[in-house]
């Protein structure tokens, strides 16, 4: 088992690419199946994009900390930031039944987070702390399909 991942990011969207590269390396070190690695990367991409775009007043610098580790069959990820208080679990659920015409643009990022991970939230000492847990059990979707001959 590896040492896990610790990362500090500025509140700029360009930092997401740095996050992605670090997560790729972490997934490889920890032998995380590709479908689980995608969910981990997506959930963090969505959470950080939301925080960076909406959490800070314009031009105010901020710092976002990420820690991730694998504990057996569980991925434990914590994200802390100094943005405005925001509990991602309280996001309104998009109506997935609506037609193309009626469907609202937006709101899907938080839905993806809440669907793909178990989310906890606390506000501690003026910082948001979001804890994400993902099960490291591949459903096989991330692997190439074996073709019987």
């Amino acid at each position: 088992m590896g040492a896990g991942l610790t990362l500090r990011l500025r509140n700029e969207l360009s930092e997401i690419r740095r996050l992605t590269a670090a997560l790729d390396a972490f997934a490889e070190d920890e032998a995380i199946p590709s479908d689980v690695a995608m969910r981990m990367a997506l959930v963090l991409d969505e959470l950080l994009t939301n925080t960076i775009e909406y959490g800070y007043p314009d031009e105010v610098p901020g710092e976002i900390g990420i820690e991730a580790k694998r504990d057996g069959d569980m991925l434990m990820i914590s994200v802390t930031d100094d943005a405005r208080p925001f509990d991602p679990r309280k996001a309104p659920r998009p109506d997935l039944e609506q037609s193309v015409e009626d469907r609202r643009v937006g709101g899907l990022g938080l839905h993806l987070i809440n669907t793909m991970a178990d989310v906890d939230y606390a506000r501690i000492n003026g910082r948001n702390l979001v804890t994400l847990r993902l099960l490291v059990t591949s459903d096989g979707d991330g692997d190439p399909v074996a073709v019987a001959t």
Partner: peptide, 17 residues
């Protein structure tokens, strides 16, 4: 691809596209 398919499925897009 499977990863992209999953994201569209969770978002309800497979039903409307």
């Amino acid at each position: 691809r499977p990863n992209v398919h999953e994201v569209l499925e969770v978002s309800g897009f497979l039903a409307i596209l």
